[in-house]
Structure formats: C-alpha cells, structure tokens
Design a binder for these strands. Sequence first.
DNA 1: CGGAATCCGACACGATACTG
DNA 2: CAGTATCGTGTCGGATTCCG
Lengths: 110, 110
Amino acid sequence: MIKKRGEKMSKAIKGCPIDQTIQAIAGKWKAVIIHVLLHTPVCRFSELQEKLPDCTRRMLALQLKKLTADGIVKKRVYATVPPKTEYSLTSRGKQLGPVIEGMQDWGKQG
Amino acid sequence: MIKKRGEKMSKAIKGCPIDQTIQAIAGKWKAVIIHVLLHTPVCRFSELQEKLPDCTRRMLALQLKKLTADGIVKKRVYATVPPKTEYSLTSRGKQLGPVIEGMQDWGKQG
DNA sequence: CGGAATCCGACACGATACTG
DNA sequence: CAGTATCGTGTCGGATTCCG
C-alpha cells in the first residue's frame, strides 16, 4: 500500500474514538494552538505567532490548515491590503476545551 | 546539540503544561493503552496484546516503557517460568482518566 | 511469555527563501 | 501580513529476528 505524502497514515484501531482525537490534536503544536484560541477566541495569524514564538510560520500555517480541515478551527479572510486573517474555534473545537484544560492541569502537577 | 536515540526532543514551549501532557500521551498507542488500563486496572502483556490487535509487540513494549518512564504506568514482574508481567496505572496515571475519557467522548461525536 | 536488536520507509519538524 | 516552496534531518512506527 503506497501512500501519498501528507495523507493520514492511521487506520489504527478502526474507528477508535480515542485515536480520532489523538490524531486531531497530535503533534507538537495543535493542542497548544487550541489552548490559545480558547483564551483568545479570535486571533490573527500574527497574534498566534506572538503567543507561540517557538513555532515557525511554516508550522503554524501547517497546523492551522490541519485543524481547519478537521473542523476544529474556522478561518476568516479579509481581502484587504495588507491581508488579514482571523482564526477561531468552531463549536466542535470548543468542545475540546475540557480536554485541553484537563491536559494543562495534569501537566502542571507533574 | 546531539541527542541520543530515545531522548525526548521537545523543549518546545519551555515548561508548557499542555506540551508536557501531549508528549506524555503522544503517539499512536499510548493514550489507547491508558484507556485500556482504565477499564482493566491490572493487565498482563498478552492481555494488552489481545485488546490491541493492531499494535505490534514491539510497539506495545516500547510504549509501555515510555509510559513507565513517565510514571504513568507501573510494572510488576513475576520471576516465573514462563515469565509473567502485570501492568497497571500509577496514581498519576489514573489522574489522566478524565482527559482520556474526554477524548473518547469527543471522538465519538465526530 | 515477554521482551530487545536491527533494519527500513514514512513522516514530522525546522531553516530558509520566496510570493501575492 | 499571511502565507507557500524547497530542502534536510531526526524520529516514529512496522516487519522481522533473536534472547532469557
């Protein structure tokens, strides 16, 4: 079975809900991005950059793309010069709130 | 900066609690293993294998090792022939319960 | 039974440079 | 400002084999 680049590999445990969620927030940045958006409901690209200084532009754009594709993040583009975009959580994204907060609480105790 | 194999790469956001948690349950299997252990508090290696048929022995052993190293899973070895091992969650591991369950609930709705 | 060692391909991530 | 293109590297995960 040959896979194209960028395709999701995980068939994993077929339909395992946990795996779905894992894949949705996996990686070094997605969960943190969601966390930021929970506390700053509407965020421009550059705002996210400021809040995540260790995340490169490339990674930020990439992860936002995946999050958007997964229906977690909404993107709004203003056709102005210079361009302006706004990111926010979808209702489905907001439902991740408790999980993300739980993750933060757990991490703090470590 | 050279790293040995198996060492954690993530400096990420220095000390970000979310990142800590992400790293702790990252990968294709760790969260699912924890989930199994939440529902089957004491589990032999082969039991875990049966419950996770898509996870190879290698991966299972590897992830259990990481989980043990992170203080999430406890391992008990019986020096018998044939060998027998039992895995269970530490108290810290059990604290991940709400997070894991939250992840499952979210995944089910998707 | 419960692993560890080795090999290998796929992918995640990062640095850098370029674009509308 | 908000991205994309290209490239290089390390890491992850799977297959297989070997060990106490």
